[in-house]
Amino acid sequence: MNELSLAGTPLEYFHVCAFFDSREQEYDVLIPFFKEAIEQGEKTIHIINPATFDDHRERLSKAGIDTHACEACGQLELHSWGGTYLDECGTFNKDRMLTTLAQTNEAAKKDGYTRVRIMGNMDWVFNDASKAKDILAYEAEVNEVLSYNRQPAICVYDIAKLSGSMMMDLLRTHPLTLINGVVQENPFYTPASEMLEELKHRQDNSAGSSTHAV
């Protein structure tokens, strides 16, 4: 099997939560991960803000990735948030995204790729919180899909946009974290079933307190 490493560390788990202070730090750490995939002939999918497509391509090219050729042959795919994380109404659809991931993996296998690496920029979560309600449930559930398919995925979060509670939740839903350029197996990781139960409990409590408030 091909190498699979991030920030100089071999990966044994497949769902990584990466926190970055700046885009420079982000690309500094992720470019080797992207290059490793390209050099090993793996499929690479980047789901990013459509406004940053050109900048993203330029950064990859500057790092020595033949972006044009990789996109032309289908080895590299850039997707925007709309159509992947977000539906036509701009709302996050957990089940649709989980299905898309599974289908992507199947399609890549059919095309002869040994592995699919996914990087998702998660800034959309902070644009409209009401449309990203299921994100934590998704982050909990996607572990199974990624583990089953042995499909590495990095969820990229901007540290400046996180609240303390959001960070704690994200830490609980990812078995691997990348903070300050260091990859760590996350001892705080909470199994999906337990996390989903807690989220449901929170939702019930919230509904209950709203009713009482009225």
Binding site: L162, G164, M168, I179, P187
Partner: peptide, 17 residues
């Protein structure tokens, strides 16, 4: 509890600067 404490240790990354 140890898992929770370990998670807490990641928090200072958020407040740098």
């Amino acid at each position: 509890s140890i898992r929770d404490l370990m998670g807490l240790l990641a928090l200072p990354a958020l407040w740098s600067g």
